[in-house]
Computed example of a mutant assay.
Amino acid sequence: MNALFKALSHPVRRSIVDMLRKGPMASGDIAAAFDMSWPTITGHLNALKDAGLVSPERDGASIRYRLEISAVEEALAFLLAMTGARTPDTEEDPR
């Protein structure tokens, strides 16, 4: 969980996660959206991968990144629990 929140603490990484919400993207397309060097973007992608937020998959000569929604759901459940909000898992059965 610490790695996940650390990964999301950087605005570029949050932007990448937001981009991947629309579907998998090639690393080159992700890099093209930012005015920074390729090694810097690679570092951000590695931080997201290490946190379990994205997974890489080879697509021919390029690498596509996919958002791992389960990691996002875990973080959201944690934050909701901190606020005392009920999640679908914690709601009582109305019967």
Rank of each mutant, 00 (worst) to 15 (best):
V12I: 10
V12Q: 06
R13T: 01
R13A: 01
R13P: 02
R14M: 09
R14V: 03
S15P: 01
S15W: 02
I16S: 01
I16V: 08
I16R: 00
I16K: 00
I16W: 00
V17E: 02
V17N: 02
V17C: 04
D18K: 03
D18E: 08
D18M: 10
D18N: 06
M19P: 01
L20T: 00
L20V: 00
R21I: 03
R21N: 04
R21Y: 02
R21K: 08
K22I: 03
K22A: 07
K22P: 00
K22N: 02
G23D: 10
P24W: 11
P24E: 13
M25S: 04
A26M: 14
A26S: 14
S27H: 09
G28W: 08
D29H: 15
A31F: 02
A32I: 05
A33C: 13
A33R: 10
F34A: 07
F34Q: 06
D35N: 14
M36R: 15
S37I: 12
W38T: 13
W38R: 15
W38D: 14
P39H: 09
T40H: 11
T40P: 03
T40G: 08
T40W: 10
T40L: 09
I41A: 04
I41S: 03
T42Q: 11
T42H: 10
L45V: 02
N46W: 09
N46G: 10
A47S: 11
A47M: 07
L48M: 13
L48R: 09
L48W: 09
L48C: 09
L48A: 05
L48D: 10
K49W: 04
K49R: 14
D50M: 08
D50P: 05
D50T: 07
D50A: 11
A51G: 06
A51C: 13
A51L: 10
G52L: 03
G52M: 04
G52H: 07
L53F: 09
L53A: 04
V54D: 02
S55V: 06
S55F: 07
P56A: 12
P56I: 02
P56C: 08
R58C: 08
D59F: 00
D59C: 01
D59I: 00
D59M: 03
G60L: 05
G60F: 01
A61Q: 14
A61T: 15
S62V: 15
S62H: 11
I63A: 09
I63D: 08
R64A: 14
R64E: 15
R64D: 15
R64V: 14
R64P: 06
R64S: 15
Y65G: 01
Y65K: 09
Y65F: 15
R66D: 14
L67S: 08
L67N: 08
L67W: 10
E68H: 11
E68K: 10
E68Y: 10
I69W: 13
I69N: 06
S70H: 13
S70F: 06
S70V: 15
A71D: 05
A71H: 02
A71M: 13
V72R: 07
E73R: 05
E74G: 06
A75G: 11
L76E: 11
L76A: 12
A77T: 06
A77P: 01
